[in-house]
Computed example of a mutant assay.
Amino acid sequence: MITWPCVLKLDGDDELVYLDSPKKLNIECQALIWGEDDVVIDAKGQCYALQASTDHSLELRPLPQTLNLQEVTTLIQKHEFSQAQTCLIKIHFSSVQQAIEALSH
């Protein structure tokens, strides 16, 4: 079961998209061209593949990959660097959920 909030990590791009609900995921994915290598990472670090269902809705398929706090922090550091908004040295989190929620601002 997916734990919200989440981030969408587009393959080949350092920018992350903050997602606070399934509704937000659907809105973002309608506006983007997403591919099979893009992943959604939930608040526990679990990764999910995006998949279109037969009724054209969006589904998340769990992947065997789970990211730990350091891996999520590295993704967020790359995201912030690409945005040129935050000093990377100041980026520290105590949990994956806290790291993801930091993107909501």
Rank of each mutant, 00 (worst) to 15 (best):
S94C: 10
G12C: 01
L25M: 10
Q70E: 14
P5H: 11
K78V: 04
I76C: 00
S53I: 00
T54G: 15
A84L: 15
F81M: 13
D37A: 13
L25A: 11
T73C: 07
Q70I: 08
L60N: 02
T86Q: 09
D20L: 08
C47K: 06
G12E: 06
N26Y: 11
K23D: 08
T54F: 15
F81K: 15
A99E: 02
T74H: 14
L75A: 10
T73S: 08
I100S: 00
L50V: 01
E59M: 14
L88S: 10
P62Y: 03
S104I: 08
T66D: 07
Y48P: 07
S104T: 09
L60H: 01
C47G: 05
L75D: 07
E36D: 09
L10T: 11
P22G: 12
G35K: 08
L63N: 01
L69P: 06
V39R: 15
G45N: 01
I2T: 12
A99I: 00
E80K: 14
A52Y: 08
L32I: 12
W34Q: 02
S53T: 05
T54E: 15
I27G: 01
I100T: 04
T73D: 01
D38G: 05
H105P: 03
L58K: 10
E71H: 06
T3A: 11
I89N: 13
T86P: 05
L88H: 07
C87P: 09
Q83W: 11
Q77Y: 13
H105V: 02
L69E: 06
S57L: 15
D42M: 01
I76P: 02
I100D: 04
A99T: 01
I27V: 14
P64H: 00
Q65M: 13
A31L: 12
A31H: 11
A31I: 02
V40I: 12
D38H: 02
F81C: 10
E80T: 12
Q70D: 15
P5W: 08
Q46T: 11
C47P: 01
E28W: 01
V17G: 09
N26S: 15
S57K: 13
K44Q: 12
S57D: 14
M1P: 11
I27H: 05
L67Y: 03
V40D: 09
C6T: 00
V17S: 15
Y18L: 03
L103Y: 00
Y18N: 00
L103T: 00
L88N: 05
E71T: 05
T86N: 09
I100P: 02
H105N: 11
C87S: 14
T86F: 15
H92F: 09
I91T: 04
F93C: 00
C29Q: 08
E36N: 10
L88P: 03
L75T: 04
D37S: 12
L32Q: 11
L32A: 08
H105A: 12
S21Y: 02
K24V: 03
F93G: 03
K24E: 08
E28T: 05
Q98D: 07
I76H: 06
H105I: 07
K78H: 11
K23H: 14
P62K: 02
F93T: 00
Q77M: 14
Q70Y: 12
D11H: 11
V40G: 03
Q98C: 09
L32D: 04
